[in-house]
Design a protein around this nucleic acid. Sequence first.
DNA 1: AAAAAAGTGTGACCGAAGTCACACTTGTAA
DNA 2: TTACAAGTGTGACTTCGGTCACACTTTTTT
Lengths: 187, 187
Amino acid sequence: MERLRQHIEHITSLTNEEFEYIQTHFTKKRVLKNQYLLHEGDDVKNEFVVLSGLYKVFFLDEQGREYIIQFAKENWWMSDYQAFFQEKKATVFIECIEAGEVLVSTLETREKLSAELHKMEHFYRVKLTNGYVALQERIKLLLSSTPQERYEAFVKLYPDLLQGLPKKLIAEYLGVSRETLSRLYSR
Amino acid sequence: MERLRQHIEHITSLTNEEFEYIQTHFTKKRVLKNQYLLHEGDDVKNEFVVLSGLYKVFFLDEQGREYIIQFAKENWWMSDYQAFFQEKKATVFIECIEAGEVLVSTLETREKLSAELHKMEHFYRVKLTNGYVALQERIKLLLSSTPQERYEAFVKLYPDLLQGLPKKLIAEYLGVSRETLSRLYSR
DNA sequence: AAAAAAGTGTGACCGAAGTCACACTTGTAA
DNA sequence: TTACAAGTGTGACTTCGGTCACACTTTTTT
């Protein structure tokens, strides 16, 4: 939980009392490799804050091809946000790649903490601002760049994700076939 | 200005005093066809709220090819948000497609109103939440769909943007060549 | 330790979409 | 009203990246 506090205080400082209160809205959960935190078709009751481990948020097209929306490591938040906010059924999966722990929260928590504590509304706004900018950057890349450039941008942005991560998953994140990706650095 | 009030009150209700105060932070500006509101390389001092007219936010790659990040019509907000929030130089252009009016605001305004009025921080958070979900949806489309599917999704999502909008611009938004797009509905 | 599964590189082939070129239409401005 | 620019459809050709197939390596499981 101390990690959550640091994470929030990176954006806005909290009193002990405030954090005590906030804390009660999150519960810790251990997650094993290959475990699913969310499955297509589920009601999306939760969002997760990664404490440790590595996770992928992905979806399948009609032919069963897999596309990765997001990798998540320490301090990243994840859910099927479309379904989470609009209270629809999940269209994506969240699966654990490397075992670790997450904090579990709900939409009610997000809205309640935001309403009760101006500081928390601020925290969520800043998080969303950063997320919005990151997504827009990804759109720019997807629109305009070659597989080569996408890979280079990925390496630059997430150098720490590279080791241990199968190239196949990187390819699925970049929207490129595994073979094409392989040929990028072998010639 | 009444339109701004309705727009904000769609998310959170305001007293007259509150809106009076908020209002002083926005200035109205008339925009002519083909006029640029933002140019690559500019300092990004402003964000804009569309009152009327139609605008495109786009960027150019090294070869001068154009890619559209977003169209904006009534009640849409636009800026080079990456540069706006991080106070960098613009990497995108904003150009008017159909003359109209916009409200002009600044980063200081956004932060100040958010800090002073919990309601406004809430308003911005909800706007960002919706924007985040929309961008994620676009990423899913760009990753997994054919030109055909992209076009169909666009028509479904923005039927009102279709009339009067040159197909070339739609192609640039979808990340498809003008010719390919043309062939989609002519056979 | 053996066997099964997952990860990776690489060749051959194919096809969807990009590029280039041009004709025709529509809209805008002189 | 004429002329110029912008928008649009379509053919011919090319190419980049996807798909399929297979060998080899590394990791995991039993």
